[in-house]
Nucleic acid binder design. Structure first.
Length: 265
DNA sequence: ACTCAGGTATCCT
DNA sequence: AGGATACCTGAG
């Protein structure tokens, strides 16, 4: 067991912030599947108990949960005249940007287009069940590129991918064949990485931005989805100035997204 | 039954 | 360049 006790770490908010599709509520807490491992998380007296050894925490989950980044300091950047952002940031305190795996992010966000979050989760789970490795009873890892490349198209489609089936298959094939080496893109700057990802079919501005933010930990990436656009229209007169948040505007995006969704009528 | 969902590719003008 | 439209499918 490893205990995390910090106001800047809140597993429930992270689970509802929409960045991760495999962190879900179970009987007495949350269950996360990542890196081919399962991690159980229990909330207790405002603390989080991670069901792992100290070594496993230090070598894996500490980085995954981005525990070396100081999130409290981001909050200081909000201009005092921006009441909306102030509210959003305070409301979302505890959210962190997870360091997830690039391939999983790429596939998950290709799937995400024109889908609700529950529908995305259903598709992702189906993919894992069909093409991932079994880790434990009923628990499966996210499939490798090779595994998805080899997947028969009709079985991929059976994961409710709809018109995205070919997008996923194409991306998996390119990655599996080394023609699109996700692990070698780290050296690219944000702009070049974004451009590179958008070369893939089914990857537009929004999906690529999400892959940057959640898969490559580019905290300055600012995905604009319908929620964010709605906020920018209603609260910022159609144009938001991200200059105060240079280097971490993606963190602000998460606060805005979470706030808008959690407080919707 | 009907709209909309964390969009994107394609086809217009 | 910028705007309109089709697209699989499930949830509300």
């Amino acid at each position: 067991m490893y205990k995390i006790s910090s106001l800047d770490f809140n597993i429930q908010k992270i689970a509802h912030s929409g960045q991760c599709f495999r962190l879900n509520r179970v009987e007495n807490g949350y269950r996360l599947v990542a890196f081919g491992r399962r991690l159980n998380i229990i909330e207790q007296d405002g603390c989080c108990l991670l069901d792992c050894t100290c070594d496993e925490y230090n070598s894996l989950w500490k980085s995954y949960f981005d525990m070396d980044t100081d999130y409290a300091c981001f909050s200081l950047a909000v201009p005092k005249e921006d009441g909306y952002m102030r509210q959003a940031v305070d409301f979302g305190r505890g959210i962190r940007i997870l360091r997830q795996e690039p391939f999983e992010m790429l596939v998950s966000f290709i799937i995400s287009q024109r889908k609700s979050i529950p529908a995305i989760k259903t598709s992702v789970e189906a993919l894992c069940r069909k093409f991932g490795e079994q880790i434990d009873e009923g628990i499966y890892s996210f499939p490798t590129a090779q595994s998805l490349k080899n997947a028969p198209t009709n079985e991929l489609a059976a994961c409710s991918l709809g018109y995205r089936t070919q997008y996923v298959k194409d991306a998996a094939e390119l990655v599996a064949d080394g023609l699109f080496a996700l692990d070698k893109l780290n050296s690219l700057d944000d702009g070049a990485l974004l451009e590179k990802l958008m070369k893939l079919k089914g990857v537009g501005m929004k999906v690529a931005s999400c892959v940057l933010l959640f898969g490559y930990h580019r905290l300055d990436a600012f995905p604009r989805d319908v929620w964010i656009n709605r906020i920018i229209d209603s609260e910022y007169n159609g144009e938001i100035d991200l200059a105060p948040y240079k280097g971490f505007s993606g963190v602000m995006q998460q606060y805005m997204f979470f706030f808008a969704r959690e407080t919707k009528s």
